[in-house]
């Protein structure tokens, strides 16, 4: 058995495509890493890293890379995670090599239904369950895929455990699912935008996660237009300024503020608390993430 990290917490960050999931996940991870004594790990899933592009930083891979203070980044692919697990299980590197160099095995990892999902979540929950290589973090933040793919990912352990009631596959899947439905260990964050499509998708996902995993997700509304003027101040301007670019601009801001407020209110009415995150106009990535960090309340 590896070290069990009883107090480790996993945060899954998801939402509709294009809402700014990754940057908000980074903001949450950065904030957690500054709050806690021990480091936080921000994880991307798949074969290529968005953060490598965003931060123009190479070397984000399976082995955690220190990015800033207490914050490490990693990129997990199903193949890496499975390899890690198999090595831990078999202990003999030669056999593991044989296993993964086998062409049939390679194809199988790609196509066996549910295997990739369970492997990724197996890795994510390995610190809590005390299996695999040590994952010495207080917080693990997972930049998860968008809505439909995230649900497919999270549902896989339960589905597999129902197909295989006995044997190691069923047992591991069941244990992974038990972590996913434990609100003291897992949190879910849904990122939305103050627009119709993301709002509708967010609310659907909110209910699905709450019902299927018994954990109430946290909803953040991202990229809210935040001019330094209030609605009434804008209305005041529009009373004197009726022509030209500046009045068009003020009119647009006012209409947009009202529209966005409606979407936020609908979400609040349905889910209770909604974190409001402004549209940050900084383009320097760390500055952007620090600023976003001011608006997230991870716990």
């Amino acid at each position: 058995m590896s070290k069990v990290h009883e107090d480790q917490r996993i945060t899954f960050v998801t939402g509709k495509g294009g809402v700014g999931k990754s940057t908000l996940a980074a903001a949450i991870a950065l904030k957690l890493s500054m709050e806690s004594e021990s480091p936080a790990l921000l994880v991307e899933l798949g074969d290529s890293s968005y953060f490598e592009v965003l931060f123009e930083a190479g070397g984000i891979g399976y082995r955690p890379r220190s990015m800033r203070g207490n914050l490490d980044f990693a990129l997990w692919s199903p193949e890496n995670c499975l390899q890690d697990y198999v090595l831990h299980f078999l202990k003999i590197e030669k056999v593991v090599d044989l296993f993964f160099k086998n062409p049939v095995m390679k194809a199988l990892i790609n196509v066996a239904p549910g295997l990739a999902e369970v492997t990724l979540l197996g890795k994510a929950t390995s610190g809590i369950r005390g299996v695999g290589s040590d994952l010495p973090y207080r917080h693990i933040v997972i930049d998860s895929p968008s809505t439909g793919h995230a649900l497919a990912l999270l549902r896989a352990p339960k589905a597999l455990s129902e197909v295989f009631r006995i044997g190691p596959m069923g047992r591991e899947s069941r244990r992974i699912h038990e972590v996913l439905i434990d609100s003291s260990k897992c949190s879910y964050v849904i990122v939305a935008l103050p627009q119709e499509l993301p709002r509708v998708e967010t609310l659907e996902l909110f209910h699905q996660i709450r019902e299927e995993f018994g954990v109430v997700p946290k909803v953040y509304c991202n990229k809210i237009l935040s001019p330094p003027l209030s609605e009434s101040e804008l209305e005041g301007i529009l009373q004197t300024q009726t022509k030209g670019g500046i009045s068009h601009f003020a009119k647009y801001l006012l209409d947009q503020l009202k529209r966005e407020r409606e979407h936020i209110d609908i979400m609040k009415a349905e889910v209770g608390w909604v974190g409001e995150v402004p549209l940050v106009l900084d383009s320097e990535p760390w500055k952007l993430i620090e600023t976003l960090g001011e608006y997230v309340e991870p716990h």
Binding site: P227, P228, L229, E233, G236, I237, T240, Q241, G244, G245, I246, H248, F249, A250, Y252, L253, Q256, L281, S283
Partner: peptide
């Protein structure tokens, strides 16, 4: 389409600076 290219005014008004500042920021963005 909603960001005007020209916002010059003949006379300044209350909150003009704040509005113009935000306009410039969006434009840079």
């Amino acid at each position: 389409v909603w960001l005007p290219s020209e916002v010059a005014v003949s006379e300044k008004f209350e909150h003009y600076e704040a509005l113009l500042d935000y306009y410039e920021k969006l434009k840079r963005y």
